[in-house]
Design a protein around this nucleic acid. Structure first.
Lengths: 136, 136
DNA sequence: ATATTAGCCTACTAAACAGATAGGAAAATT
DNA sequence: AATTTTCCTATCTGTTTAGTAGGCTAATAT
């Protein structure tokens, strides 16, 4: 289940893209427009900063800014970063504690295929696609 | 994320299908073969009984038995029942507290499409498919 | 009768996660 | 120096996950 972290991150990025004036947009504005807690969003942003998804600027006149054009943002990347992966079962996670039954697990191939399906789906959608909803 | 409830339920059904002798298989045997807690499985089984997925028989010689042939079991049904739905975001759940922004939500169409993709994927796989892993 | 087995029920726990709230430090701009 | 804003850390409440433990009843086969 996709949590608020991933969903809110997407909404912030869409908001930034739709209200893009070239300058920085303070989180206060975005939170008000989106009806979300500013403090909670401030917690989600650092991971986007560290991974060069957005550019953050402190001080008066500061805020956040996209660093690419909307077509260059892939939804799968945003969700993976903010959710910490999109794997449908724990055995496929990065902290994969290698199940000893995995060699003859009857369901593992299914989970793997579903994982690929999920990755492909979300990697096939860009921020620009989300803005013109008929593309989805 | 698919939890142990859904994954274990599938493993129980596969075990029943693979060791199908026509008679009833006690949970003790299944738990031992699959390396799972019998008590925990006992918690998961009632939902499968109530929805006529398996047939349970008390007393000596009792246990559980499939009521259909493996080709007639769809993975999506098993997962939906044991997980309580497969929706990727809470706004698509049955206890849908109708988000007031849903009319112009930029991401809702994506979640809906992903939901359909997920349903279609798991509804396209049967227990019989899981048994011959090359089919996946 | 006795042993076996599901079915049901209650209670409990330990750990993690979800969804925040709060306070303040650091940086940058005016 | 004052203000704005990011950025960091801590805390909190409630829920979920993944079990464990125990016992009771009803049904069934031998």
């Amino acid at each position: 289940m996709i949590t608020t972290r991933g969903r809110y991150a997407l909404r912030v990025l869409i908001d930034l893209a739709e209200n893009n004036s070239g300058s920085y947009t303070p989180m206060k504005e975005i939170a008000a427009r989106q009806g979300l807690s500013q403090k909670y969003l401030e917690q989600i942003m650092p991971v986007l900063i560290k991974n060069r998804i957005v550019d953050g600027m402190s001080g008066k006149g500061g805020g956040y800014r996209l660093v690419r054009s909307p077509e260059e943002y892939v939804v799968g990347e945003i969700l993976s970063l903010t959710e910490g992966g999109l794997e449908p079962v724990s055995c496929l996670g990065c902290s994969a504690d290698k199940c000893e039954r995995s060699d003859d697990c009857r369901t593992l191939p299914m989970w793997k295929k579903y994982n690929e399906l999920t990755q492909d789906f979300f990697n096939g959608i860009t921020l620009a696609d989300l803005m013109k909803s008929d593309k989805i």
